[in-house]
Simulated scan of single mutants.
Amino acid sequence: MIEMTVAGIALDASNRKTPIVLLKDGTGRRALPIWIGDNEARAILMALENHRVPRPLTHDLLGNILKTCDVLLERIVIHSLQDNTYYAILSLRQGETVKEVDARPSDAIALALRCDCPIWVMESVVADASIPVDRDADEEERQAFREFLDSIRPEDFSQQGRGIEDSSTS
């Protein structure tokens, strides 16, 4: 397994501006793009920006339930890619008991960010779906990409007028 971190959220310009969460490996040489729904993109961005809301949203609520029940989210694992759909599990520990729960990667990532737990991806998934990151890219291009990622906000994913439904392909 390869530990990965969230590099940010991007919009797929070729696909009706569908959000993509970008995971990167520790070396920064590979990125794993996962197409996600608007709500999950908003939830991930809110966690990345430490944005707090007056009342808990779904992923906040689930994190609160885990904490209240003394359940630790040890890690999430994106374990397979089948027919362009990623599959993940939540690894939960309560005392000596460990259980795995099926989850969409987008929801698992949003929860992992809130619970400060690691994101792991199976080597086979990285081999099949990752894209190389050009480490020799011009610094100007890297800076422009960083600025683009920094400019994206949760409100950019408003569903009004977009005609995009919540996708279960993540």
Rank of each mutant, 00 (worst) to 15 (best):
S124R: 08
V133Y: 00
S124A: 07
P54R: 14
F157Y: 03
L113H: 07
A110W: 12
T68S: 10
C115N: 14
A137G: 04
A7Y: 12
T27W: 07
E74F: 01
V6N: 05
R135W: 09
L66R: 07
R146H: 07
S91K: 14
D134F: 02
A129Y: 00
K24Q: 15
E155K: 03
K24E: 15
V77L: 13
L45F: 11
T5M: 09
A144V: 06
D128W: 04
V133D: 02
Q82E: 09
C115H: 00
R93N: 09
S80A: 09
D70T: 08
A110R: 10
T18D: 08
H51P: 04
V6P: 01
D136W: 08
P54H: 07
T27F: 07
L72V: 14
G8Q: 05
V133F: 01
R42E: 13
T58D: 02
T27G: 10
D136L: 12
P33S: 05
D70P: 00
F145W: 06
A112M: 09
G37V: 02
I119H: 15
E3Q: 14
E100N: 10
S158G: 09
R42N: 11
K17G: 15
D136I: 01
R114T: 02
P132S: 06
V126F: 03
E123R: 11
S14W: 01
V126K: 03
L62K: 01
S170H: 11
G26K: 13
L32N: 03
S80C: 06
R104Y: 06
S151Q: 05
R146E: 06
R162M: 14
D150T: 10
D136V: 03
T68D: 07
I152P: 01
S167K: 05
R30Y: 12
A43P: 05
I164L: 15
V125Y: 00
A10Y: 08
P132G: 04
G26C: 12
E155T: 08
E100S: 06
L32M: 12
E141W: 15
T85N: 02
N50Q: 14
M1G: 11
I89A: 04
L73W: 02
T18R: 03
S170C: 15
L90C: 05
P154D: 06
L73M: 09
F157L: 06
A127V: 13
I152L: 13
V98E: 10
I9Y: 03
Y86A: 06
I34T: 02
A112H: 08
